[in-house]
């Protein structure tokens, strides 16, 4: 059992390494996400002007930026395989699970690196202070994990469709709604500063969503991949 898990991890890391290498040479997903995120961020900061935003609005704006950035670039991992024809070689060589896990890890790395730039910029440009910094970082990490998890399985579905452009956003919205509600609520709490007991249900929701999304995706991916 341990050997099987080790092999799965090793094969997933091979997919991750390949995707990172390709991304490092083309910078397609990273550039798309970063340009989108920074453009929206600048637009929002100019629209808001010098106003001090309430934590409810700031939290919603942050997750709108992260959600649409994720939708703009994270589908690329599977779409590129389909469009370039490499999906045939990949299907012939790899089991479905390591492909899913490798792509998931890649999307997590990309989204975390985008968040590492966008979130501090968001706080600076909108002149926001965070009352609970550690909890805020935890919420952003869990939210990004959920965004990456849902985007990965949905990207695998969208990659098979003839019209790929807006389909991911449309498909993702209902799937990501519980995550976004939990992430916005938790972010608002960490910006405003609340007792930990108030934050706990939202953190629980984010943890549960992430666990459920990865488990369900692993179970379903075989059908999506081989369809």
């Amino acid at each position: 059992m341990r050997t099987r898990h080790f092999l799965l991890l090793k094969r997933s890391c091979a997919v991750l390494q390949k995707d990172l290498r390709v991304e490092f040479r083309t910078r397609y997903a990273y550039n798309t996400l970063m340009m989108f995120a920074v453009t929206v961020l600048v637009t929002v900061s100019f629209s808001v002007g010098g106003m001090i935003l309430e934590s409810e609005i700031a939290a919603a704006l942050l997750w709108i930026i992260l959600f649409f950035s994720a939708m703009a670039g994270l589908s690329r991992t599977f779409v590129q395989e389909e469009e370039s024809g490499t999906v045939v070689a990949l299907k012939l060589a790899a089991d479905p699970e390591p492909v899913y896990l490798g792509k998931l890890l890649f999307n997590i790395v990309v989204l975390f690196s985008i968040a590492a730039v966008v979130v501090p910029l968001f706080l600076i440009m909108l002149n926001l202070s965070v009352a609970m910094p550690l909890s805020f970082v935890l919420v952003v990490l869990l939210g990004c994990l959920g965004l990456a998890g849902a985007s990965t399985i949905l990207a695998a579905i969208v990659a098979k469709a003839a019209v790929k452009g807006a389909l991911l956003t449309v498909l993702a919205f209902p799937v990501l709604l519980p995550l976004l509600i939990g992430a916005i609520s938790a972010t608002r709490s960490t910006l405003a500063g609340v007792p930990l007991e108030v934050l706990r249900p939202d953190l629980g929701l984010l943890l549960f969503y992430n666990g459920m999304m990865v488990t369900a995706s692993l179970l379903l991916f075989d059908y999506v991949w081989n369809e």
């Binding site: 090793k10 091979a14 490499t86 045939v88 790899a94």
Partner: peptide, 24 residues
């Protein structure tokens, strides 16, 4: 097959290394 393509962004060695990796 004409339908099977390899990764243009990788070298020939890197392609063989990757496919060995995913095959275990």
């Amino acid at each position: 097959s004409p339908e099977l393509e390899l990764y243009g962004e990788l070298s020939a060695f890197e392609n063989l290394e990757f496919f060995s990796g995913v095959r275990g």
